[in-house]
Nucleic acid binder design. Sequence first.
DNA 1: ATGAACCTTGCAGCAGCTACAAGGTCAAGA
DNA 2: TCTTGACCTTGTAGCTGCTGCAAGGTTCAT
Lengths: 149, 149
Amino acid sequence: MNIGEIARMANTKPETIRYYERIGLLPTPARTAGNYRDYSVQDLNRLTFARRARDLGFSIDQVRTLLDLGANRDHSCASVDAIAREHLGEVKRKIADLAALRRELEALISQCRHGTIAECRILEALKPNQDIPRQARGRKPAAWRAEST
Amino acid sequence: MNIGEIARMANTKPETIRYYERIGLLPTPARTAGNYRDYSVQDLNRLTFARRARDLGFSIDQVRTLLDLGANRDHSCASVDAIAREHLGEVKRKIADLAALRRELEALISQCRHGTIAECRILEALKPNQDIPRQARGRKPAAWRAEST
DNA sequence: ATGAACCTTGCAGCAGCTACAAGGTCAAGA
DNA sequence: TCTTGACCTTGTAGCTGCTGCAAGGTTCAT
């Protein structure tokens, strides 16, 4: 198979495959007489595995490790489990972070009174809160000013 | 204020501030006799605003727009609202993608039987499904893009 | 023979910083 | 006064994971 064929089969692109080769995630393939990359079924399997793991959000380094682990058939799969769990942990953390973010944004947006910029609560809420002392915040907005591009 | 002081006050780093200046997010500041950057309170406010917006996940471009919008006090704040809503939409989409991912990972991990690599279900599940008969079972979650923040 | 559709290499770019290196400046202590 | 060390300056390269482009080579059909 040439690079375009394997790319279609693995649902990816030639550029990505060459990139994977460059960073050592895929072995350097055989070459045809015309210097085209010539891939085997093993190459396709390795690439497909890598793509699937990437789609699940594993980092390139994690994919590399998973591929390496897969080579030792007698080894315990505990390390595989550990990598998956670690990744799951990261995903959960990201979800929590984004959920907090969503709450903040929703609070921000819910304050919009659809007036002018001068009384915009969203911008207010983003502002440095140094001079919000006791009064309502509308009074000293010149504290920050944008100058143009 | 020199760059280190303003950095501490805005809870960021000199490198970041110089970067913001380079990309035009912050204006070029005054300079001292010794060619040190010399920041005003306005600079600090602008930077603090930018950092807060960035912490809430707004892109640099969105921050730039928000800052520009903030300059026209008479303008309607509808565009500010729109940007915030758009960002909220992105955040929600990301949360949904990550939630799908989490379910897949949990399914993967729950299959681990703690045996050898040869019988590892996690690796199995990641493998090219070329010998999974006729059921087209190749779906993947929405192509989510991992990112840092 | 010619043209399209591929392939090759190398390099630049995206976001949003971060981390150097090699030198200049400044305030404090001996 | 001199020296130390903590800052500052510029410029440049690196991070992740690709993606795109340019300039040229190959293959295949017509």
